[in-house]
């Protein structure tokens, strides 16, 4: 799956949970205050299910789930490694 397709799916998921207006690709989704750190769990479970990947302990860091770019980058890395 190419980068753009991954990003589109990530953005669609995020759009169900927080307002995307004015949210840049590198902006922290947690600073929007629309979601709290509990949402990081939902995000991990979403990428695992949606993209069929396993997020191992070494990738379970907030920095990998902080922004649209971070999540897209993680998924791209994981899917290309498969």
């Amino acid at each position: 799956m190419n980068h753009e397709k991954i990003k589109a799916k990530v953005v669609a998921f995020l759009g169900q949970h927080l307002p995307l207006d004015g949210l840049g690709d590198s902006d922290s989704i947690f600073k929007t205050k629309a979601v709290n750190s509990l949402f990081a769990m939902q995000l991990v479970l979403f990428v695992e299910k949606e993209f069929g990947i396993q997020v191992e302990n070494e990738d379970l860091e907030m920095s990998n789930f902080e922004s649209i770019n971070a999540v897209t980058g993680l998924v791209a890395r994981k899917t290309s490694a498969q």
């Binding site: 750190s37 509990l38 990081a40 769990m41 991990v44 479970l45 379970l60």
Partner: peptide, 18 residues
């Protein structure tokens, strides 16, 4: 299982390892 797995992510007040 999920709770333990994500615990360090949810405790940003502490510097925890997974």
């Amino acid at each position: 299982r999920q709770g333990v797995r994500f615990y360090h992510l949810l405790r940003q007040d502490q510097e925890l390892k997974p």
